[in-house]
Design a binder for these strands. Structure first.
Lengths: 145, 145
DNA sequence: ATTAACTATTGACTAAGGTAACTATAGGGG
DNA sequence: CCCCTATAGTTACCTTAGTCAATAGTTAAT
């Protein structure tokens, strides 16, 4: 019946996140900060709410992340038409940091997937979002089934 | 080249752990507390160091988890021959809590794996430990390759 | 014009973990 | 037997990262 997949899954988390943080630390980043950089690089200049929605994290958390990134000089604020919003974009230095970290992370990724066939990687890439989808769909207390 | 598997992986973590905590909350537990119960149920009465090694978490963290479980009355201490060690076992009530939670978690697990074929589940169960192994093997700074 | 909705921020709190320093016990030479 | 070292557990203090509730400033809608 294949029980205990969660356990396997969760057993990977701490070592992975620790490794990533350690890898990002020389750039003054942690994974949670990296996420913001990553999002902005991919989606272009964005607002707090957009980032917050994407990662499903409350706005105050993103505010703090962005503040720290501003202090580091990797992101900056640009005025938008709507004066409520704070549009965040990468600075020059931010672009550089992005490329460096992206490179390092990809290298790590390849290393950790050694011994995992291409087909299997594709499968992982399909299954993980599937599980997440089930998770969000499910939502409630889980006692309805 | 299959980049971004980490991202997929990590995107599942928060919803999953949140869901698990929410599921365990009625029993006064969180997933981190549950891990201790789970370990003891499976391995029998155990010491702090054993639990700490298994989950690769520092001893003080486990001390705290165990203290909270003691307050809840789900685990208790039994004297060992070695008077340094604190052997922890489940109480009667702890056994009950174990069974209830185990049941709920399995149910959730089945639910989240709906649409994932058996073969694929088996594969997941093989891949995740593989990745973890790579992670621990790698260890260092990651710049050696 | 006033009310409602939305963006971002602040403050106070919680969960979980880490490190360093400490106590108490155990065990192995000399 | 005594000393030294190793081990189990604890305590104190700090960090990261998140939540919720309340608030200020803007915008939009009736």
């Amino acid at each position: 019946m294949m029980e205990g997949i969660f356990r396997q899954y969760l057993a990977v988390y701490r070592p992975l996140i620790t490794r990533l943080n350690q890898l990002l630390e020389p750039h003054g980043l942690s994974y949670s900060l990296w996420q913001v950089i990553f999002y902005i690089e991919r989606e272009g200049p964005s607002t707090l709410v957009e980032i917050s929605n994407y990662y499903e994290v409350e706005k105050p958390s993103i505010t703090r992340r962005v503040h720290r990134l501003e202090e580091q000089g990797v992101v900056e604020q640009i005025p938008g038409n709507d004066r409520r919003v704070k549009v965040i974009r990468l600075t020059e230095s931010g672009e550089t940091v992005y490329r460096d970290c992206r490179e390092k992370i990809s290298r790590l990724e390849r290393k950790l997937l050694e011994g995992v066939g291409y087909e299997e990687q594709v499968l992982l890439n399909r299954l993980l979002p599937e599980i997440k989808k089930n998770l969000l769909r499910e939502g409630g207390t889980g006692d309805e089934a």
